[in-house]
Structures are given as structure tokens and as C-alpha cells.
């Protein structure tokens, strides 16, 4: 183990280590971050949701986008799997269907970074108990 010889050393080390803790730090205040939920039930996984989730996780860390990626169970739109629900801070969640690896990158470029909508939005056809 190389000893820490200065405050600069410590700061550099912290910078490297912080990344490892980031997943936990973010979950302390998820509401202020972009939240991406990937539906990962059997139907989703069979249609490639795992790879889609991978894209989100990797792209976010590559481009330094502050976001939380989690998985959820089946959202009920099995016909449109893989489905992804994206919640931007202060906005209502938007659910996108037919998200493959390519479309995942497109969602990041267009919706997440530029607020442009992308094809395949699944309209909200339910009321959530949170809002009752």
C-alpha cells in the first residue's frame, strides 16, 4: 500500500474511490436525479432488457450523467418489451416501449439530454396509488 503523503494524494484517492460509492450516494436522494427503471421480468429479460440496462449503466458513467438505474418487475406491457420508464426530476415518468440497445442510446441522446420525445411512448392508462 502506497502511503498518502499529502492532501493532494488523499483528494486524488477519494476521487477514485468515490466512483465505487456513487451507486449508494445516489440512492440517498433519488428524487433529484434522473431515474431509469428497466422492466426486468421474464418477458423483459427474454427480449433483451438486461443488455438494455447495461447500456444505460455504462453510458451514464461514460458521459458523467447523474442518474439512477434500477430494475422493476413486469409493467404489464409485455407486447412492447423491453420497456423502460424514465423519470426526470420534476417531470412525470414517461414509459418507452420496444427499447433495444440502439434505442437505449437514442433515449439518452434525445430524451434525457435534450428533452426530445422518442417513438414508442406508452401512454399512461392507469392511476398510481401514490397519487390518490
Amino acid at each position: 500500500m502506497e502511503k498518502i503523503k499529502s492532501l493532494a494524494d488523499l483528494k486524488k484517492m477519494q476521487g477514485d474511490l468515490r466512483a465505487k460509492m456513487e451507486l449508494r450516494e445516489k440512492s440517498n436522494h433519488p428524487d433529484s436525479l434522473i431515474q431509469v427503471k428497466v422492466a426486468m421480468a421474464t418477458c423483459g429479460i427474454a427480449s433483451g432488457a438486461k443488455e438494455v440496462m447495461e447500456v444505460f449503466v455504462e453510458e451514464f458513467s461514460k458521459r458523467n450523467i447523474e442518474a439512477v438505474v434500477t430494475q422493476t418487475g413486469c409493467m404489464g406491457y409485455c407486447y412492447a418489451e423491453p420497456t423502460v420508464e424514465i423519470t426526470k426530476p420534476g417531470c412525470d415518468p414517461v414509459t418507452f416501449g420496444y427499447v433495444d440497445v440502439k434505442k437505449a442510446s437514442k433515449l439518452i441522446d434525445k430524451y434525457i439530454l435534450n428533452n426530445e420525445l422518442v417513438d414508442g411512448i406508452i401512454p399512461v392508462n392507469y392511476a398510481s396509488i401514490d397519487k390518490k
Partner: peptide, 8 residues
């Protein structure tokens, strides 16, 4: 390392 990662 986890402590240092959190401003330790």
C-alpha cells in the same frame, strides 16, 4: 477506502 470515498 469506503470511508475515504465518503470525504473521510
Amino acid at each position: 477506502e469506503e470511508y475515504i470515498g465518503r470525504d473521510g
